[in-house]
Design a protein around this nucleic acid. Structure first.
Lengths: 146, 146
DNA sequence: AGCTTATTGAAAAATATTATCAATAAGGTT
DNA sequence: AACCTTATTGATAATATTTTTCAATAAGCT
C-alpha cells in the first residue's frame, strides 16, 4: 500500500507539497524538523510555503505515513514511517533513524507494571538510542590511526 | 538525598524560583508545561518571571530532579523525577503520571534489535500509556448508572 | 552584618506555530 | 481535452513560545 493510495483512500488529494514532503522524508535517513524540511525543499528549488509543510506533516502523521520521533537531546523530528507496529532506533553519532518491528517483547514488562501500578496499559512509546553499524566502523578506524 | 542537597553539591544555590518550581512539580500528579507552571505559581500569589521557570526547569532537568515526559498527544510536560533508572506511565483520562522502576525487562528486546540492526544500544526512551486505577473505577461507576 | 557573585526579572529579540482568505490546482465529469 | 467543483495552497498577519541581555537582587560564605 503506497502512500498515494493511503491519501486517496482517505479522501485526500495527492498535492505537490504533500508529495515533496513525503518524498524528502522517504529519502532522508535522519529525522527532520518542519523548518529543516522547508529549507531543504526551498534550497533545491521547490517553491512551497512553510505553512504547507506544517499541514502536510500533520496530515501524514495522522495517516501514519510519517512518525514523530524524539532525538537524544529531546527535540523532535519527523521520519517516513513503515506500516504496522514498529519503533525507532536512533544513532547518537550520525543521527540516522531506522525502524524495528514491535513485538511481544514488552509483554512481560507491561504485565509487571500493571501489577505494580494497577494501571491498565493500552499503549506505549519506545525508542532506542545507540551507535549505528557505520559509525561503529568509523570509531574503530579512528582508533587505529592513533 | 533531597533536591536542595543536589543543587548545593553541584554548586548551585537554592533560590526562590527553583524552590517554587520544584515544590509545585513534587505536589502535582500531572506533568506541567512551563506556561502552566508559571500560571499556577502566579495565581497562588507567587511573583516570579516566566524566564525563571524556563531556567529552573533546564537546570533541574539537567540534575535529574525533574523529567520531561511526552503526553499521549505528543506534547511534553515536566514531572518531579525519582532517582535511579525509571520510566513513566501516564493516564489517558486524568493525565496523571507516575513512575515505575526500570529493570532488565528490556534486555531481550534490546538484544534482538541489536542483532537485527547491528546497532549498539546504549539508552532508551520508554513510556507507557493507559488508565489509572482511579479512572478505571470511575468508568465502572458511570457504566452502572446506565 | 558585610561581601561576592550566582541568579533573577523586565523588556526586547528571535523562533515557532496557527489562523484567515483569496487564488490555485487536483481529480472527477463530460 | 476542456470544464467544474472544491480541497488545498501560499501570503500575510496574528499568536505563542523560547532565548538573549543586563542592571538589580538575594543566596550563602566569612
Amino acid at each position: 500500500m503506497n502512500w498515494q493510495k493511503v491519501l486517496a483512500d482517505n479522501g485526500y488529494r495527492v498535492s505537490g507539497p504533500r508529495r515533496l514532503v513525503m518524498q524528502l522524508l522517504a529519502d532522508s535517513v535522519q529525522p527532520m524538523t518542519p523548518l529543516e524540511i522547508y529549507q531543504a525543499l526551498s534550497q533545491s528549488g521547490r517553491d512551497l510555503g512553510m505553512v504547507s509543510v506544517y499541514r502536510a506533516l500533520e496530515l501524514l502523521t495522522e495517516l501514519g505515513l510519517v512518525c514523530l520521533v524524539y532525538k537524544p537531546d529531546g527535540s523532535a523530528g519527523y521520519v517516513a514511517g513503515s506500516s504496522g507496529h514498529h519503533h525507532h532506533i536512533l544513532c547518537k553519532k550520525c543521527h540516522c533513524a531506522i525502524t524495528f518491528a514491535g513485538s511481544e517483547d514488552l509483554d512481560s514488562l507491561v504485565k509487571r507494571v500493571e501489577a505494580e501500578t494497577k494501571f491498565r496499559v493500552s499503549d506505549h512509546l519506545l525508542q532506542l538510542y545507540g551507535i549505528c553499524p557505520e559509525c561503529q566502523e568509523k570509531l574503530v578506524d579512528s582508533a587505529e590511526e592513533n
